[in-house]
Amino acid sequence: MEFAVRTWSAGARLGSLQLAAGLQVETPGLLLLTRKGLPAFIPPDLLQNLHPDARACQVTPLHFLESPNATTVAKAGGLHKLVSLTGFGMVAVARDSLMDESNGEGSSKMGASFETSSGRRVVGPAKYMEVVNAFKPDLWVSLPDEVPSWVAEKRNRLSVDRTLQWLDQCLSLQPAEYGNRCLGVVVGSTSLDERIRSAEQTATRNVAGFSLGGFGLGEDAAQRAVQMEAVLTKLPKEKVRHVSGIGLPGMRVLFTKGNRTQNCVLQM
């Protein structure tokens, strides 16, 4: 994966993302929301007729905990081959109903709880990366501990600490032969200090880019704009950025804007 910024203007960036299969995605660009790797309500034979910037899909690894499971996806040769979308990029994102299920900050059983077809299941970095590695995605987002805007300060700090810990564990489970395809998650809810701490610490890790997590969970638009602007000043300008949960329902954006983060919609 290679990302290149072609031009800057008033804090905004235009770039291109070269994916492993030779596919080039222009940024900013839309990530198509999928269910088990296939965009909802759009037949695969019509995908090529969509906007030329819509050439990447956002897929949730937690949809593959039961069927088809990671073993099935791996035997098929990865998610691109399983769903016959070799001409599209695949970005694995754990964007779902998350809930803390750990027994404490030092617990080895720490994980996030996700709603599945067979009820809630706790998923830690090892299980998460088992599915991600089976996908062979073009990019993947590390497992986050996202919390809503109304949590206490102590819980928010714990969210940042856990997300950094899980990032390190996920990176240690990334196959070396695939290269660096990880987007580290920046969290911190509505605390500007915690957002900045999360961004600074995530930027020290060996990641290909960043995912701005925890938005769309109760903050207002004014808070969101201030937090994003502060976070982006702490992240390397040459790396790709992703955000979800701030547009209209069903929209996901491969985020490469600078200061004007509050306008992260399809018209960017």
Score class of each variant (00 low, 15 high):
V141Q: 09
V141P: 12
S142A: 15
S142G: 14
P144C: 06
P144E: 04
V147W: 03
P148H: 05
S149E: 09
W150G: 00
W150K: 14
A152S: 14
A152T: 15
E153C: 03
E153D: 11
E153G: 03
R155L: 10
N156C: 12
R157A: 15
R157C: 07
L158S: 13
L158C: 09
L158N: 13
S159A: 15
S159M: 01
V160W: 09
D161A: 15
D161F: 03
D161Y: 08
D161G: 01
D161W: 03
D161P: 11
T163Y: 04
T163I: 01
L167V: 04
L167P: 04
L167Y: 06
L167W: 01
D168F: 00
D168G: 11
Q169I: 13
C170Q: 04
C170W: 01
L171N: 03
L171S: 11
S172Y: 00
L173S: 09
Q174S: 13
Q174W: 08
P175S: 08
P175L: 07
P175K: 03
E177Y: 07
E177D: 14
Y178N: 13
Y178M: 11
G179Q: 13
G179N: 10
G179S: 12
G179P: 09
N180L: 07
N180G: 02
C182I: 06
C182K: 03
C182V: 13
L183K: 03
L183I: 08
L183D: 07
V185C: 13
V185A: 15
V185S: 12
V186C: 10
V187A: 05
V187Q: 15
G188F: 05
S189Y: 03
S189L: 04
T190H: 00
S191I: 14
L192K: 09
L192D: 00
L192P: 00
L192R: 04
D193G: 02
D193H: 10
E194M: 06
E194C: 05
I196R: 08
R197M: 09
S198C: 11
S198K: 03
S198L: 01
A199Q: 00
A199T: 06
E200K: 14
T202I: 09
A203H: 04
A203L: 00
A203F: 04
T204L: 14
R205A: 12
R205G: 02
R205T: 09
R205D: 02
R205S: 12
N206T: 08
N206C: 13
N206G: 11
V207A: 03
A208Y: 05
A208M: 01
A208S: 13
A208C: 01
G209V: 01
G209K: 06
G209P: 10
G209H: 10
G209Q: 10
F210C: 02
S211C: 14
S211G: 07
S211F: 06
L212R: 07
L212V: 10
G213T: 08
G214Y: 03
